[in-house]
Amino acid sequence: MKIRFTLNGERLEMDVREDQRVLDLLREELGLTGTKEGCGEGECGACTIIVDGRAVNSCLMLAPELDGRDVITIEGLSKDDEPDPIQKAFVDAGAVQCGFCTPGFVMSTKALLMKNPRPSREEIYKALEGNLCRCTGYVKILEAVENLITKEG
């Protein structure tokens, strides 16, 4: 079926299969491989994208559901190769190790800060609880997000 949506600021019209996952549409059809698949069932958050301002597991969403929506992927955060402040903050805090979960964490953080620029620690926990990381123990991830808030405030 035909769908129209906005992807990283660009208006697209595409023919998609009804049973196609958004994750596969992004990775396989559009070549946007920054969104990762870690579990395929919405448990790990590596495939997090932002749809109409909300963080979504793209492995649990079907392509037709994108019709009329505004979508941001990890590739859409950096402008002309200039990283988003969140991406810089993650690297500066040492919150990146193997990096496979990082795009998902960055997108969950982005969705949080778009809605709530000064979240409390509890709100950060809540926003990131759906993202699994096996390398960092989450300490430096939390530091990255908190550094960002302090800097902006």
């Binding site: 491989t33 590739e75 990146v96 990096g99």
Partner: peptide, 21 residues
């Protein structure tokens, strides 16, 4: 010294290539 990870930004920006990419 504390050092910034040399391949950190590529990973954070989704550019790093893992096998499925």
């Amino acid at each position: 010294k504390p050092l910034r990870r040399v391949e950190g930004l590529e990973k954070a920006m989704g550019k790093a290539k893992y096998v499925d990419d």
